[in-house]
């Protein structure tokens, strides 16, 4: 169904930005971009652990969203949920195409430029933090997504359920299992480190 054009000089707000952007309003899309770029970058960065690739994938997320915004339909779901879903799919493709990169250790990424306050550049960074990030990246994609949405975005189970297309109860259960898996991963890494020494 063809969408009705929206007046161009309408003030852009959270409520009308998606509608305006879907009719081709570039300012509305810029507004949505500014609202979401940091969170999408964060999500991707923590999932793959490389700033350069995170920038590349973030760009692809927004290019893809921009290319398909005309067919986007609001269904009471936050616009960010759509972006997270695109990011989630692109990350899966990235892992598939670059499976060797999974083995890149966090230590290899210390000297990345422009990181500012990125975790691996923080002076107070310690081995425990590295272990935790490594353990998170060893979890299944769904579990990583859940943990990152919960802790980076501070989203509730209900909000995460919308993004991940599950029930709130399922998210609660998955969260519990994710923490148990994470603890097991940490124990594995810890044992490996002890053996290495």
């Amino acid at each position: 169904m063809k969408k009705k054009p929206v007046p161009v000089n309408l003030e852009i707000t959270d409520n009308n930005a998606v509608k305006l952007a879907s009719t081709g309003n570039a300012e509305a899309f810029s507004y949505l971009y500014e609202q979401n770029v940091k969170r999408i970058f964060n999500y991707i960065y923590y999932r793959i652990g490389s700033e350069q690739d995170a920038e590349d994938l973030t760009a692809r997320v927004f290019h893809r969203a921009f290319g398909h915004i005309g067919s986007y339909e609001e269904k009471g779901v936050p616009f960010s949920a759509w972006l997270y879903r695109i990011a989630h799919n692109l990350i899966a493709n990235w892992h598939r195409d670059n499976f060797r990169r999974r083995e890149v250790s966090l230590e290899d990424q210390i000297d990345l430029p422009h990181l500012g306050d990125l975790p691996e550049r923080m002076v107070e960074r310690n081995q425990e933090q590295e272990m935790l990030l490594k353990a998170i990246r060893n979890l299944s994609p769904d579990r990583q997504q859940l943990i990152l949405l919960k802790y980076l975005e501070d989203l509730s189970n209900a909000e995460i359920a919308i993004i991940m297309r599950r029930t709130e109860g399922a998210i609660k259960s998955l969260y519990h299992r994710s923490l148990i898996s994470l603890r097991e991963e940490l124990e594995k890494i810890d044992k490996y480190n002890v053996l290495e020494k």
Partner: peptide, 22 residues
């Protein structure tokens, strides 16, 4: 997790250039 997973700031040059490209 609360302690380690802090939001990071993407490079402003990247953010602005992507906005321009888009």
């Amino acid at each position: 997790l609360n302690h380690v997973l802090k939001p990071v700031t993407p490079d402003p040059v990247f953010v602005n250039s992507l906005k321009l490209k888009l």
